[in-house]
């Protein structure tokens, strides 16, 4: 769920959210994602720190204290890891905060060692990283430049997923922090099998360049990564979705709606395949309960 725009935009009214979303869909736990102000990309680091702190206090006062079904996402100034760690330490004891949000379209690839203090704090407090599709890092949306259309931009933002995954894995973040858990939010999941096969093949050829990586990339991806489901993939051959779940891992998928965005998924219609009750329970409840320690 997002609070994105100033002045009473969608997702800014708790009562309406209850009526429109939490109640009709029987949501037991809804995790808030506050995107206002692009804090993860803010270059004025003092402002970023102030905005992050305000965001977190606002979530507690206006949302978490008023509605027990909601959980919060810690906003941090990711380009100032010292301030980010301070904010994590300040808020971590409030267990209603269930993850730390980072922007994948970052100013530098997130695997760089300058970000590692954030990962150390995240692992120490058993808080996963929620890497949500957003950010204005200053780099072109694609390696080939700035695209013309929103349709391209939408996809390019999704590719912040493999950009961040490869940086975190290949820089060795999970060698140093083996218990760090990462969930990629609104960045898709169907690209994951192909991309991980690619990284494994490259690692076989080029591993002499990164001797710190003891295992093939797939080892870390299987151990350290999870994915939210929205926007759900809709293959023409429906069974391809089931195979994709097999390859990604049924235990790695966490249901999400993306309420109140235009491309949100309705839980009644999101899946184009027939799930068994067990499978549905796993993706729509059990995986998230375990992952977020509800």
């Amino acid at each position: 769920m997002h609070g994105h725009h100033p002045a009473a935009p969608p997702g800014s009214d708790l009562d309406f959210m209850r009526e429109q979303h939490l109640d009709p869909f029987n949501i037991i736990n809804g995790i808030l994602i506050p995107l206002f102000g692009n804090v993860g990309s803010e270059r004025n680091l003092g402002y970023a720190e102030a905005l992050a702190t305000a965001h977190n206090d606002w979530q507690v006062a206006e949302w978490l204290d008023k509605e027990s079904r909601l959980r919060g996402t810690l906003v941090v100034s990711q380009d100032d890891p010292v301030a980010a760690v301070k904010e994590i330490q300040r808020c971590a004891r409030d267990r209603r905060f269930v993850q730390i949000m980072l922007a994948p379209r970052s100013s530098e690839p997130l695997g760089r060692q300058r970000y590692w203090p954030i990962y150390e704090a995240a692992e120490a407090h058993d808080l996963p990283l929620g890497i949500h599709s957003y950010g204005i890092g200053g780099h072109a949306s694609t390696g080939g430049g700035w695209p013309s259309f929103y349709m391209e931009e939408h996809y390019a933002t999704t590719m912040g997923g493999p950009a961040t995954m490869s940086s975190l894995v290949l820089e060795g973040v999970f060698e140093r922090f083996p218990k760090l858990r990462v969930v990629l939010v609104e960045i898709g999941f169907a690209w994951v099998p192909s991309f991980v096969w690619r990284m494994d093949r490259l690692w076989e050829r080029m591993r002499s360049e990164i001797p710190h990586l003891i295992h093939p990339p797939s080892h870390y991806v299987k151990r350290n990564f999870w994915y939210t489901t929205q926007p759900m993939e809709e293959p023409g051959r429906r069974d391809d979705l089931r195979r994709t779940f097999d390859w990604v891992g049924w235990d790695r998928l966490l249901f999400s709606t993306d309420y109140p965005h235009w491309d949100q998924d309705d839980p009644a219609y999101a899946f184009n395949i027939k799930l068994t009750p067990t499978e549905r329970r796993q993706i729509c409840r059990d995986n998230a309960e375990q992952f977020y320690r509800f």
């Binding site: 760089r112 780099h139 390696g143 080939g144 590719m159 490869s166 490259l202 080029m206």
Partner: peptide, 28 residues
Amino acid sequence: FAPWTNGWPSYHIEDQAAQSVGVQTQLL
């Protein structure tokens, strides 16, 4: 442009990993 949307990676292997994504966005 940086090969990845999050900037300039450290290693050749990251550059190589980026190629298939670069091609996808160009096809789009």
